[in-house]
């Protein structure tokens, strides 16, 4: 057997990493406060209403985190056009290479999910399955931003939420917007569960530095030239 030579490859540029962690924190805050807004806990208090504001604070955190989430996504969208090959839009939408893309996606499912095929199966950047999932998450993020700001617009004098006010009539009023915004939260939570699990899985089983790559930006790849 040949020697294993690992090389350090720089994958994730700083805007990608900032986007990742800022969004991760924002999503935790948004999901926690969002579910709380959807079904507030019962606080049996004898205090008068003027003496408390906890639910208002929960909503404030949700709205503030929404702005953070929005601007982080803007940065990422900008980077879709100016970033390196792993960050560019073409990493997510495989124009001109759909055939290989879907063949490789099937290989990923066989190897990582169904475990029918033996590892290693390595991709330097996003594997096709991950890239497709992230593309979907970008779209879902945009959807959450549009529906969220549409709900927020009537209680805000700010310019930005007003830009999304057209969403409400389109979806048949605030009640429908609220429902789909709420459903979107669940998709984020399910995504997060699978995402975190798979990253841990790759780290534990394959030891390729998946987890730390999103901190330092680099990971170790065996013979990068031989891999995709």
């Amino acid at each position: 057997m040949a020697k294993h030579i690992f090389r350090r490859v720089y994958l994730w540029e700083w805007p990608v990493r900032i986007y990742h962690w800022v969004t991760a924190l924002a999503v935790v805050a948004l999901a926690a406060t969002g579910l709380m807004i959807g079904a507030p806990v019962a606080v049996m208090s004898t205090r008068e209403a003027y003496a408390g504001y906890w639910f208002g604070t929960v909503r404030f955190v949700h709205f503030a985190a929404a702005y953070v989430f929005f601007f982080a996504l803007l940065l990422r969208v900008y980077w879709l056009f100016v970033g390196n090959s792993h960050a560019r839009w073409s990493a997510f939408i495989p124009v001109g290479r759909f055939g290989t893309f879907f063949r490789e996606m099937w290989a990923v499912i066989r190897t990582d999910v169904l475990q029918l095929q033996k590892p290693p199966l390595d991709f330097v950047g996003h594997n096709p399955m991950a890239a497709t999932t992230y593309a979907f998450i970008f779209l879902l993020s945009a959807f959450q931003i549009a529906t969220g700001f549409a709900l927020y617009a009537p209680m805000s004098a700010a310019w930005l939420p007003g830009l999304f006010a057209w969403v409400s009539p389109l979806m048949g009023g605030d009640a429908g917007v609220r429902l789909w915004h709420h459903a979107g939260t669940w998709v984020f939570l399910l995504f997060a569960a699978v995402h975190v699990y798979l990253v841990l899985y790759h780290d534990v089983v394959e030891s390729r530095g998946e987890l730390s790559s999103m901190v330092g930006g680099s990971r170790f790849v065996e013979h990068p030239a031989e891999h995709r």
Binding site: P40, V41, A42, V43, S45, R47, A49, Y50, A51, G52, Y53, W54, F55, G56, V58
Partner: peptide
């Protein structure tokens, strides 16, 4: 509304 903001439901 003040009850809403104070989380009194």
């Amino acid at each position: 509304r003040p009850n809403y903001d104070a989380g009194l439901f």
